[in-house]
Simulated scan of single mutants.
Amino acid sequence: MNSWENKALNFINQTSRWDKEKHISSFLAFSISLVKNLLEADIALQLEFEDENTAKVKNASPHFLNEIVISPDPVRKLLHRHAFKTIYWTEVAAIPDHPLHELLRDLSSAVIIPINTEPHNSLLILGWTTQQVFETAFQDCIETIRLRLKEILTHTQQQLYFQGIAMRFAAILHCLPHAVIFINNDGFSGWVNQKAADILELSGPGEQLPAILSDAMTQLRNRAVNTDDIYNTAIELFASPENAISNWEWKLEGADPRTYRVSCLPVTSQRINGRLWIFEE
């Protein structure tokens, strides 16, 4: 195995470990820095096409290149001329009027790697101040890295997208005037909004173990003056074919007596099987 094959495998191994052990938000920056070090480049950066009029430098090493903005149209034409394949420039100065002059003017050799991802396309640009010879083994190494980088970009964008959705829905559920409790049947996952955390006297909203939620709900039920009615209704609930109930009254006593109208609904999907509890005053 030659040194370029070793570098490609090194890149795959290190990015795989990072994918499992580190936070996704820093995944891409780490990967680009790793490419730079493995290939002994003097610069490495991501050029992202943000819209029709803007292409911006991100995750650059050295950092002072970050946030440079260039016109994307000439770069797109360059990519079209090369059929969106990796471009190898052994002598940057010998290429007249290339659209990446602002980024590469102090370099002798460069590699431009298109990485097509949604919603925005990106390029990885590597540059060297000394002239390079891009032999076949080197190009094979670049192609392996390109495929892995495409996976990283796609994975990063998907993770950030779903994280954004989760944050939005959590914010909405925390603002509801009703207490919302979800207990999964897997025995490991549960969730409460802020109102439910207050009612169940938990340390805070968010993820909670089902055992903790079940114990807190038992304590809440034990404060009720109609405990027998709640117990008998619970037996009917779990025996019913619908496996659901609404307008179930829990009448609490104590220093702050309240009556809650309780609903319990089954939640079933391909990956989720549990119960949603809703407490309305």
Rank of each mutant, 00 (worst) to 15 (best):
H155W: 14
F162H: 12
G274N: 10
E48W: 03
I115M: 07
A224C: 14
I43W: 06
I43N: 03
N226H: 03
V267K: 12
H178T: 14
C141Q: 01
S31H: 05
S26R: 14
L265Y: 15
T144A: 12
I272Q: 08
A41R: 01
L79T: 02
T227I: 10
I245H: 08
Q208W: 10
N185T: 09
D73P: 04
N59P: 02
N247F: 02
N243F: 10
I172C: 05
F64M: 08
L28R: 09
A60Q: 01
V92F: 07
L200H: 07
V133D: 12
Q14W: 04
I278Q: 11
L65C: 04
N273Y: 05
H63E: 12
T156Y: 15
Q194R: 13
R223Y: 10
A8C: 09
H98K: 10
N185V: 00
F182H: 10
K7W: 00
V75A: 00
S16W: 05
F182K: 03
N185W: 00
V267C: 13
R17I: 11
A196L: 03
E40T: 11
I235F: 04
Q131C: 03
Q157Y: 13
K36Q: 09
F138I: 09
N184A: 13
R271N: 13
T136P: 04
S3W: 09
E21N: 11
N2R: 03
I43D: 03
S214K: 15
M217R: 04
L213A: 03
T233P: 02
L39N: 01
I278M: 08
V111N: 02
S31K: 00
I70V: 10
Q157S: 12
